[in-house]
């Protein structure tokens, strides 16, 4: 009995120590990435390439998901609002939920599983096949040459993707609400415009997506860089990237929402 308790406590302790240690290393890694960003900015072509592989290649999934999420919001929102006889508020409901929450959060979740996992797998494989070591042997710092451009490419892509997600979602809500069900088009847009504030809602949404982008990217990069250089190690790291960054997105979203919309 006493043994079991000690064992459990010891396991808890070692897990805590391990987690803290990893967080410390990840933070240091983040700092290193920022510190070595000079090369990336001197050679924008490197960042462009990463915007292509994280942003452009995630475009389809983001646009299609955004459209469908917006259409579902339009449908569900209409059903609910109809019972209170305020179908005109559909525009507000769709726009506010997308711009404040769903846009940044769902786009970031999709981004984590599409681009984040790809980043981890790519860096993990580069490590497993000694490409990073080879780079270092050629006196090229992998953090400056590989990690930092990926970081900035993803951080630039994320808010743009989130904005596209929200815009597509609002369009989807418009399609279902106005075109399909027949909510009055004028009140759909005007009520939306009256309720959505550029600074309070749109800007805060953008800030959220930037924060999520930084979090997802740094987790993905770190997991890849830290992965054991084996096939199994890389596949595990990829899974961990998706799980950890999804949790980080949701937790950060709560914190940010609490800070941003406190007064409203």
């Amino acid at each position: 009995m006493f043994d079991a308790i000690t064992r459990t406590l010891r396991r808890l302790g070692s897990r805590t120590v391990n987690t803290l240690w990893r967080m410390g290393v990840a933070t240091r890694f983040f700092g290193l990435t920022l510190l070595h960003s000079g090369t990336a900015f001197r050679r924008p072509q490197l960042i462009l390439k990463e915007i292509f592989s994280t942003g452009v290649l995630s475009l389809i999934i983001i646009v299609v998901s955004g459209l469908f999420v917006g259409m579902v919001l339009g449908l569900q929102g209409y059903q609910t609002l109809q019972t209170y006889g305020s179908e005109e508020a559909l525009g507000i409901l769709v726009a506010l939920s997308l711009v404040r929450e769903l846009g940044p959060v769902v786009a970031a979740l999709l981004f984590a599983s599409r681009a984040g996992s790809a980043i981890t797998a790519e860096i993990g494989l580069m490590k497993a096949t000694e490409q990073l070591a080879a780079m270092e042997m050629m006196a090229v710092d992998p953090v400056a040459r590989v990690v930092a451009p990926k970081f900035w490419g993803a951080v630039i892509s994320m808010p743009l993707l989130a904005a596209m997600f929200s815009a597509m979602g609002i369009f989807g809500g418009y399609l279902v609400g106005v075109v399909l069900i027949g909510v009055d088009e004028g009140s759909f847009w005007s009520q939306m415009q009256a309720a959505v504030d550029v600074r309070e809602d749109v800007m805060n949404g953008v800030i959220k997506s930037v924060v999520f982008g930084v979090a997802v990217t740094i987790i993905a990069l770190f997991e890849g860089y830290d992965a054991p250089p084996t096939a199994e190690g890389v596949s595990r790291a990829t899974t961990r990237t998706v799980v950890t960054s999804s949790l980080a997105i949701l937790a950060l979203d709560f914190v940010l929402t609490a800070i941003m919309f406190r007064g409203v």
């Binding site: 494989l125 580069m126 096949t129 490409q131 070591a133 080879a134 042997m137 050629m138 006196a139």
Partner: peptide
């Protein structure tokens, strides 16, 4: 290292 070359076990080419 700029005056040093290294051939890795499996080449380690950038894929």
């Amino acid at each position: 290292r700029r005056r040093l070359g290294m051939l890795f076990q499996f080449g380690a080419l950038f894929t």
